[in-house]
Structures are given as structure tokens and as C-alpha cells.
Design a protein around this nucleic acid. Sequence first.
DNA 1: GCCAACGTTGGC
DNA 2: GCCAACGTTGGC
Length: 155
Amino acid sequence: MYFWLMKSEPDELSIEALEKDRRARWDGVRNYQARNYLRDMQEGDLFLFYHSSCALPGAAGIARIAASAYPDPTAIDPQSPYHDARATPQANPWSAVDVEFVECFPQVIPLARLREEDALSEMPLLKKGSRLSVMPVTAGQWQRIVELATGRSNY
DNA sequence: GCCAACGTTGGC
DNA sequence: GCCAACGTTGGC
């Protein structure tokens, strides 16, 4: 079991929308490093749902990988904003996973708050200039963030 | 292989 | 809207 963090613009998919729908496809990732992490995910892995490009960027909740990586259908869909003209059904370089809702944090843990934690300073999320949208989270980082968010000392 | 130009990300 | 920083593209 591994821990991850994935960024989403709440206008596209928020933790609240996932709570309502229970399950969603996580698609549109168009960066090779992020894609490789998607491919490393296993059903049952947990991830921090991070809201980006919004009024209050930060960790908003927890979700779970419901289906491991498969070819991202949006890459070969000409109608999709994520369409990639070089992708074909036979050779689709992009991957998607399915995710399911676990919990909303009582309050979003803002990016600025995460930055105050020495224990989190190694997270790619907090490194200057990092734009990676899918990243691994260590057990220690996971525990610290869940504790900040919920008061629970363990998950 | 180098590197300038470009488009994108994402916080502020 | 601004802009720093990044990844990708494509000419050479």
C-alpha cells in the first residue's frame, strides 16, 4: 500500500464533487513523470486530494485508487480538451486511474500551512517551481497531514 | 546534442 | 492579470 498526492482544479473535479459522485476517472494527465506514478498505483492505495488553481489551494481530503492504470480514453477523443493528436487506440501513451471518495477534511489545509511544517519540506508539492501533479507521499508525511487535518494521530 | 522560443502551471 | 519556473518543441 502506497500513499500519493494528486492535484485537481476544483472547477474540474473537487473533493466535494467526488463525494457526491463517489467514483470518478482521473484522466488528462499529460506529463510523463506524473503518468509513471499513475502506473505505479495499485487498487486500494490512498491519496491526498489537493485543490489547485483556486481561491484556497491546499489538501482537501482523502480518496482511494479504485482501478489501477489503463489507457486514458480522453487522449484519443477528438472532442476532449485533453485530446492528443499523436495518440491512437493502438498506441496511447497516456494513462488514467479510477478513484473513489474516502473523506473530506473538516477544513482545507492551506498550502501556506503545509509550508510551515518542517516534516513536509521534502514533498515535491512544496519545492520551488515544482509543477508535478501526481506524486508519492511518504508514510511520515501522510501521517502528519492527516493529523493536521483531522486530529487523528493515525490513519 | 544544444538551446531559444513557446505554451503551461499555479500561486499570488 | 502577472509572472516565475517548468517541460516540450524544433531548428540547427
